[in-house]
């Protein structure tokens, strides 16, 4: 690699990271609001999320050390989360929500790398846009950064094993990761706020009717956007992407 190219890459990466850190991702639609999770639940979700976050940092440093040529692509997967989660869309329920965009990165880099990206996005959103919250960060990272990407990764692998066309595996990964994120959010709220009659189950039905149904068309939109970007990447970068897909498999089969 010529040094000039390296400098330029580093410059853009640094620029991206600065933007990423300065700019809040704002999302009014999915995350549990500050103060709306009792402290014991907030603590529990933080503890559950922590190991994934550590695993994620390890996974990213492995990518950076062993495959530095993928740094830009990782930043681009982060940028995709950034753009997509700024798009608040109207939905059939008459309310608005936004997609998460974690599936693209999860398919390319494995699920735990997206735990790190999601937590950066969620942290600054909580700090600067009053969406989500610091106390609810653990719970929100779990739904968007752990459950969603894990589902995306698993669905994509299953789809590829099942001989689905690649576009369909990508679509299903994005669609189900999005739905999964909001179902987990609904479950988190239901566990913390069970109804007097019907308990957690009734409460889950209520919360998921707000979050999950709103998400169906949005999840489809995210699926389509993910197909478009994934295909563009794949068409122009076939060899490298195939190498990467194998690499992320190796990291996760350890």
């Amino acid at each position: 690699m010529i040094p000039k190219c390296n400098v330029r890459k580093t410059f853009f990466l640094a620029g991206f990271i600065v933007i990423f850190w300065l700019l809040p991702k704002s999302a009014s639609a999915m995350h549990i609001m500050e103060g709306f999770l009792p402290w014991n639940w907030a603590l529990m979700w933080t503890l559950v999320t922590l190991p994934f976050l550590i695993w994620g940092f390890k996974s990213i440093s492995k990518i950076f050390n062993e495959k530095p040529e993928y740094k830009m692509l990782l930043a681009m997967a982060g940028a995709f989360v950034f753009v997509i989660s700024a798009l608040k869309m109207p939905s059939v329920t008459g309310s608005c929500s936004h997609p998460t965009g974690v599936a693209l990165g999860a398919v390319l880099f494995g699920p735990v790398a997206m735990t790190v990206i999601s937590s950066i996005v969620l942290l600054f959103q909580a700090l600067l846009l009053a969406h989500g919250g610091i106390t609810t960060l653990g719970a929100n990272i779990f739904s968007m950064g752990v459950a969603g990407p894990l589902l995306a990764f698993a669905v994509y692998k299953l789809g590829q094993k099942g001989g689905f066309p690649r576009w369909l595996s990508v679509f299903l990964a994005a669609f189900l990761a999005n739905m999964g994120t909001y179902l987990v959010t609904s479950l988190q709220l239901a566990l913390a706020f069970p109804m007097e009659t019907g308990g957690v189950a009734a409460s889950f039905v209520k919360f998921s009717s707000i979050f999950a149904i709103t998400q169906i068309p949005l999840a489809a939109s995210e699926g389509i956007l993910t197909i478009i970007v994934f295909n563009l990447l794949f068409n122009y970068n076939r060899q490298e992407l195939q190498g990467l897909l194998h690499f992320s498999e190796e990291v996760h089969s350890q």
Partner: peptide, 24 residues
């Protein structure tokens, strides 16, 4: 936003719930 609606539902399920911390 769907999160505002969720907030309303929380207050309906548990009217006594007091959000114990405010956004910074």
């Amino acid at each position: 936003g769907a999160d505002n609606i969720a907030e309303e539902v929380i207050m309906a399920i548990n009217p006594l719930y007091d959000p114990w911390i405010e956004p910074v």
